[in-house]
Every structure is written in C-alpha cells, then in structure tokens.
Design a protein around this nucleic acid. Structure first.
Lengths: 247, 247
DNA sequence: ACAAAAGTGTTTTTAATACACCCATGA
DNA sequence: TCATGGGTGTATTAAAAACACTTTTGT
C-alpha cells in the first residue's frame, strides 16, 4: 500500500463479509470499532471490515484492498452480493459520530456495496488480523454490530448458501488439501442440514473436480482419510450449462 | 409524481433494463437521448431509462419511480442485479457533455445500480412510452448505446436467464391469460434453446402453479389452445426449499 | 381436403434417496 | 481390544429425456 493521501469518495463504500471455517463452525471476520456513545464516553463494538472507496478506485479493487489491508491476503474469492443504500441505514448517533471522528465530515447517505469473501483461516496471517483488532465470530453468535452490519451478514450468508448449492466454492474455505468428510461437514454447517455420507461422497466424486492425493491423515485414532484437492481446471472444462428450469 | 424541486444525489443512479416479449422476441425498452457530439452538433442515440436518485430516496423506490415516469406502470417486477461503478465507465465526451447539459454540473464518477424489470408489453401504456420517445428493441439487435448501457443490458440478460431457470417469473412477461405454447416460446427465446413440447408441458403443469381457464383461443386456423393463468398463491405455498447442491 | 398448431403417453436413461456394515488406526 | 471415524454397495424411487401420432379448427 502506498503512503499517499487518498481522497475518499464519501458517498460510496464497500463492506466485506469474510467467511472462514474452523472447528466445524462457519465464522465471520469482524473488527473492533472504538466510538463515542451518546454521552461522549468511549465505547467499543464490532463492525465489518469496510471502507469508503477512493475517488479513482474501482469497487472490486476497493473491496480487495480493504481485505488485503486487514488480512494481508491477496487473490481471495470475493464477490459483490448486494447493495445497501437505504437513506436511513445510518441513523444511530454513535454511528454518525464515528463517521465524524474518523473522516472529519458529517456524512450524509452512504451506499455500500457488500462483498462476500471466502478464506481459509488456517492460511490467513493472524498477526495481521490481530494488529487490526480482528476476530473470528461464529456466524450464529454475532452480537449487535455497528450500522446495519448484522443485516448485511444475514443476507451475505443467504448468498453464500445459494452459491454453495450452485457452484463449487466450498474449497475456498478449506486448506489446499482436505478430506471429504471435512468438506461434507462444511456443507452441513453452511446449509444447516445433515447429509448422508455415502450419497455425498458419490455425488461429489462423480463430478471429477476432486482429485485424490497419495497422502493420508496421520496421527489420528481411527482409519486415516485420504486427502483431496480441488482441480479448478477440470471444473472449468466440464462446467455444466444446463438448459431448462428448476423451481 | 409531485412537482416539487428534487435535490439529486449526483453520485448514485439507477438504470432499468426493462424486458418485454412480443412477436416471439425478447425486447428491451430504450429511450432516445439528444446530446451534443464532439463538435457540438446535435445528435441522438439510445439509452436505458435511468435517473439519479434524490437525496432521501431509497434505491428500489428510485427504480420504481423511473419506471413509472417512463411507462406509467406500477407494481412491476423489478429487481436489482448488479452495480456498475468503474471510475471510467463514463468517459466519452458526448456522455460528459450530456450530463453537463442535463444536470448543469460536471459529473464525476457515477455508481449505478442496475435493475431488471419484466413487463407485459400488451398491457403497457404506449402513449406514455411514445411521449418519452421510448422504443422496444430486440435484445439481439441493440445498437451502440450511451455510456456502458450495452454492457448493462448484456449482464441483465444473463441475470434474466438465471432467474427464469430458477423462479417462475416468465409469466410477468405475458398477459394475464396465455397459452402454454406462448410460455414455451418465451423460454426458448430467452434461454436460446429448443424445448420438447411434451416434456415442457409435463414439467410446467406438474408444478400446479398454472390453472387452466375455460376460455380457448378463437379465430385461429388450427386447433384452439386453452388459456392458462399463473396462480401466485399456489406457488407461494408449494415453494421448494431443496437442500443439497447442483453444479 | 388440406394446412397449421394443439395436445397427448410410453419407454429409456439418469439422478436422488434410503439404508448398514466392515476397515484401519491410536490409545 | 476397544473406540473412533473412514470408507463402501445396492435397491428403490423420482425426474429428465427421447420420441410420433391424432385432434381441432379455418380456409
């Protein structure tokens, strides 16, 4: 990141709902916000990583920048999923104050483009995150947040579920090598359902996008599972373009 | 519409890709734009119906308003599908001039939220449209347009195709009463494929969202077809919430 | 009687679901 | 040897696809 003055565009922002998966839980990355409450006393809560865009910046790049500044990661799966532009979406005194304190301006309406990002927690640089006072929160345990960020997470989760059903993106949340069972658990947690392991295996292996590695789990007190990896080039080739309809 | 002064927010706009279906073609509603070309001479081209939002206006409402001002229609199927916010999306001199002429300002970057709308051409009020110099253009014959509007239409079409595959929305483009064959043609045109009429019929009737009316076609030189209508209340009841995944 | 589009059924193939036991390992 | 989770196969049901002829009407 360059250390030049960035002129922000105070009308448009990006917010990232960054999903991660660990200890069989779907988590979202939130950062601490220090603000002044209605009495002017210092207080804290959590918010989504996000930022105003700068005047000459593309929106997708702004989202990638925000994510990179926070986590140090690059080339992350990142997709816009909704716009939040209600004129009253920022109304709490603490939120208005916070903008004044951080930008020096009285902020009017801010339209924010929400992105969802999928990252592999184990590969993410925790130092970065800690420096930015970030923490992984179970998606089902999200407390009250700044602005309308709870709402943004809720609709982001819905989009993640849709995407998971229709595109092979679950891999983005896992390490390079993973077991099929881990993948199944990921589906179960995100879609909030139980799946039959035989049928899951059959279906996922039939796609041929997964390739088995020679490596097995080690040091586990049960039959060790083979590791697999996702072969994106195979997916891109076989990509289904089904016609017809389903509803 | 009230005749009060509207303060616009010149950073954010809405653009509507309004689809219609007639004479077995998928069409999009475009309006004539009068602008000054690089030599200052008057010229014309086409653009999507769109507008800046006003300072206190919700985005969805701004889109509905734009559509209503142009067509006189209300309660139209309208859904945001993408954001276009590239800092260079407005760069042609004629486009910059046009903003200056119509708003009196030098416009910087405009982020636009694109909506797609489905309307039944036969029920639309053509007087309105003509007054606004609007015309229905075959989606495959769209000429060069103002701004990046060609691009917006292209991605709007993709979203329409996705939506048509996954939700019962084809009816929005047809009159209240329609024949199954008309519906099939609509699917074929939008999805750009041929469908087997027996299988189509079977699948669409199995849903139970279509109800057959007593009325038949009249004055046609072949076996007259029954009319059907879409029963939204039945759809809302049976709405499928399938788990699992498909890719 | 002919042309034109509507309407209809069966068979085959493919995908989804339901279901229960043996296997390899570490402790 | 036991506890733990990995890994496998088959039968049933449901959905998708392929395919060709008869019906009704206006001219």
């Amino acid at each position: 990141m360059q250390n030049v003055v960035r002129t922000i565009n105070p009308h448009i922002s990006v917010d990232c709902v960054i999903f991660g998966f660990s200890t069989s839980q779907l988590k979202v990355l939130l950062i601490q916000r220090d603000y002044s409450n209605e009495n002017g006393a210092p207080a804290q809560d959590l918010k989504l990583p996000g930022d105003f865009i700068t005047t000459r910046e593309d929106l997708d790049l702004a989202a990638a920048r925000t994510l990179n500044e926070l986590t140090g990661l690059q080339n992350i799966f990142l997709k816009p999923f909704a716009l939040f532009g209600n004129p009253d979406r920022i109304y709490k005194e603490e939120d208005l104050n916070w903008f004044k304190e951080t930008t020096g301006n009285n902020i009017q309406r801010v339209v924010t483009s929400a992105y969802f990002a999928l990252i592999n927690i184990s590969e993410s640089d925790l130092d970065y995150a800690l420096k930015n006072k970030a923490s992984w929160i179970d998606v089902n345990q999200v407390p009250q947040l700044a602005f309308d960020h709870q709402d943004i997470i809720k609709t982001g989760l819905r989009h993640l579920q849709d995407a998971l059903r229709n595109e092979p993106i679950g891999f983005e949340l896992l390490p390079e090598k993973f077991t099929i069972r881990k993948l199944q658990t990921l589906y179960e947690v995100i879609l909030n359902c139980k799946l039959d392991n035989r049928n899951f295996r059959k279906k996922i292996l039939k796609t041929k996008y997964l390739v088995q590695l020679d490596e097995k789990q080690a040091g586990v007190a049960h039959k060790p599972a083979y590791y697999y990896r996702f072969d994106k080039s195979k997916y891109d080739k076989h990509r289904k373009d089904s016609l017809g309809f389903n509803f």
